[in-house]
Simulated assay, not measured.
Amino acid sequence: MRTVYVNGEYLPEDQAKISIFDRGFLMADGVYEVTSVLDGKLIAFDGHAERLTRSMNELDMRAPATTEELLEIHRELVRLNDIKDGLIYLQVTRGSDGDRDFAFPDPETTAPSLVLFTQSKPGLADNPAARDGIRVISIEDIRWGRRDIKTVQLLYPSMGKMMAKKAGVEDAWMVEEGFVTEGTSNNAYIVKDDKIVTRETSNDILHGITRKAVLELAREAQMQVEERNFTIEEAQQADEAFVTSASAFVTPVVEIDGAKIGSGTPGKLAPRLREIYLEEMRKTAI
């Protein structure tokens, strides 16, 4: 039985409750973050806290706690649930004023809801997908236009995961106007002639915390990085491909729409980036 956090209380998960009028439930009016835990420490917490603040600001949502308070809650949940390797999910919604209405409730009189829970993932950094790579299909990107805000509106990404599952592969890359935007829960990259190519940040993609760190580390390692759009056809002709996310870190992609990438096995660059990233994150974990 996990201990979870709900609006100021640490509770057994079967005692956790949120109002049926909460706008996160009724309107998907909420934002979230997922922070990895390795060896009992938080990975890239400051980056996730900064992006959470940005998401709330973009939606005119009142913050339920300070960054320092959120850090303490994260650490307490790690302690209470004895998490060695795993994830901490955090969600903030606009709360409820006791009824359903399209208009936002008054932020001065309506407190936002704050929920956190842990997921234990032993061996998180040793996922077989990092060794073997994953296969993806391409799907049309029909999400709303503010993908830079990490909202709980995840129905279409969930549908994309199910499309991939039905096709017998692990994930899907979304395509808009002929160009790859991102994966269902990750940022997408290709490698050609030792150059890393990934879409530049904009409202079209999530500004990944892992993405930012990986690109910084790649440049420090004298790897070439080019931020621009690329097509599925270009990806299929690439030497390597990979994805990044808070839980997948750096994971190779070995097949796109049935076409093998390179030799059809992970190349050299993505595994090396994963190694560099995990080494640095463990050094800076808190």
Rank of each mutant, 00 (worst) to 15 (best):
A241K: 00
G258N: 09
D99Q: 15
Q119Y: 03
E182S: 11
A259D: 04
A285T: 04
V254Y: 03
D148I: 04
Y189P: 02
P266G: 02
L59Q: 03
V169K: 06
D148Q: 07
I209Y: 01
A270S: 14
K195L: 09
K260D: 11
S55W: 00
S113H: 06
L42A: 03
F230S: 03
S138F: 04
N203P: 01
G47C: 06
F179W: 12
E69H: 06
G40R: 12
N203D: 13
D99E: 14
D22H: 05
G178I: 03
D82G: 04
K41V: 08
R54K: 13
E9T: 12
V253T: 06
A285L: 12
Q224E: 15
R51S: 00
G30Q: 09
R51V: 00
E182M: 01
G168K: 12
E140A: 15
E170M: 02
R62K: 15
V152T: 15
E240G: 09
V4K: 01
I190T: 02
E13G: 09
R135Q: 13
V37F: 06
G264Q: 07
I142E: 11
Q236G: 09
K166A: 14
G47S: 09
L124V: 04
R100M: 10
E9R: 15
M281N: 06
E170L: 01
A221C: 05
E240V: 10
V214D: 06
E140K: 14
E280T: 12
I83G: 11
T67D: 14
E33C: 06
E170N: 10
F21G: 08
I149M: 01
F230A: 04
A188Q: 05
V191E: 01
D29S: 08
I88K: 12
T66S: 15
G47R: 13
V254D: 02
G262V: 08
I20M: 15
E226Q: 12
N57F: 02
G123P: 07
F104P: 06
R131W: 02
D194N: 13
T198Q: 04
T35D: 10
G8A: 09
E227T: 08
L70H: 00
D239L: 09
R219S: 12
T244P: 05
L273T: 06
A221P: 07
V136T: 10
K192M: 10
T35C: 14
G133H: 04
G145C: 07
R51N: 00
I190G: 01
N187I: 01
E220H: 11
K150Q: 05
A129I: 00
I232M: 07
D257C: 02
I137H: 08
L42W: 00
E50L: 13
A285H: 09
